[in-house]
């Protein structure tokens, strides 16, 4: 009851700012609860920044934003040692990465070198600058955004790097009703709602994690998961199937999803709920298949039998 209550509160709070996007907000929270990094892929102006800022506020996390540009250097994110001529020594100026929630905006605008510096830090939870390793604050989340339309001068993340993001979400255009509400708010000047209030503190975050770790995944469910994963590796529509890391990510998210709905065990619906966000960006369609990752996920959900034989 407690977890669901907390989650519902947080979703409502964020939903006040980002109208009509409750499912995405819920998934984003799920991603953060599962200690994963989030990739938001959408056109500019869809509320990516708003969402990440609101998430940071709701969870009471320190927050920084880096706009990725083509001339951004790894040092611009990680930090740099500056020589102080007064006491003739180097002092470390930490980069923006030293925060709890980093919004990496338009990550595909920067060079692969800078991208991989960020991704390495994400994977390891620490930063190595000039031979010295410094731990990142805990918890540490990255919400990266990426423009899906291929524009000139961009460097789309390679598929292998996409695997580092636990989930990929698309926000999409708002529902007409929500959009109308937005217009009305702006008209009435009520848009300037300051930051949403914090709903979940560190202690509660920890509690949610404990609840997740206690969620039971039965044999039947694991069988279903294995059938899903096996299908991606065997069907001709898939060029690249789900990696073991991807399969584990699915299970983690499904467990978190179950906990977020106050259930002590995972049901197939949980897996199906998180499947598009977790799996779509990890799947590569084979050359002859017309659809993209989302189509593959859809195929997966339709074709793999929930009930074992």
């Amino acid at each position: 009851m407690q977890v669901q209550g907390l989650v519902d509160g947080a979703v409502k709070e964020v939903g006040n700012i980002l109208l009509g996007k409750e499912p995405q907000i819920r998934l984003a929270l799920c991603c953060l609860f599962a200690r994963g990094h989030l990739l938001l892929e959408d056109l500019p102006g869809m509320g990516k920044t708003t969402l990440s800022h609101a998430l940071a506020s709701v969870l009471g996390l320190s927050w920084k934003r880096v706009q990725f540009t083509s001339d951004l250097l790894p040092a611009d994110i990680l930090g740099v040692s500056v020589f102080d001529s007064n006491d003739a020594s180097f002092t470390f100026h930490p980069g923006p990465i030293f925060t709890q929630l980093l919004l990496a905006d338009e990550i595909n605008r920067t060079t692969p070198r800078t991208q991989s510096a960020l991704l390495e830090a994400m994977a390891e939870g620490q930063v190595t600058v000039e031979g010295e390793t410094r731990p990142l604050p805990q918890p540490f989340f990255v919400i990266a955004t990426q423009n899906p339309v291929h524009q000139s001068g961009t460097y789309p993340l390679p598929e292998s790097q996409l695997d580092r993001f636990l989930m990929r979400l698309e926000l999409g255009y708002p529902h007409p009703q929500a959009e109308r509400q937005m217009f009305e708010r702006r008209h009435s000047g009520a848009m300037e709602i300051s930051n949403p209030r914090q709903c979940i503190d560190m202690e509660q975050l920890e509690m949610i994690r404990i609840a997740v770790s206690k969620v039971h995944a039965s044999e039947n469910l694991l069988d279903y998961l294995q059938r899903l994963v096996a299908h991606t590796r065997q069907s001709p529509e898939f060029e690249v199937g789900l990696s073991p890391r991807g399969a584990l990510a699915l299970l983690d998210c499904a467990k978190t999803w179950a906990a977020m709905h106050n259930r002590g065990h995972v049901v197939p619906e949980d897996l199906q709920a998180v499947l598009p966000a977790v799996a779509a960006h990890r799947l590569v369609p084979s050359g002859d298949y017309a659809g993209d990752g989302d189509a593959l996920v859809d195929l997966l959900r339709r074709e793999v039998d929930v009930i074992g034989r």
Binding site: S70, D71, L72, L73, A75, D76, F90, T114
Partner: peptide, 22 residues
């Protein structure tokens, strides 16, 4: 750009500190 190291020039005001040759 920032693809390949090319060379040095004198520091001018406005240059990024992060690209300074400390």
């Amino acid at each position: 750009g920032n693809d390949d190291f090319y060379g040095f020039r004198d520091y001018r005001k406005g240059d990024s500190l992060r690209q300074a040759h400390w």
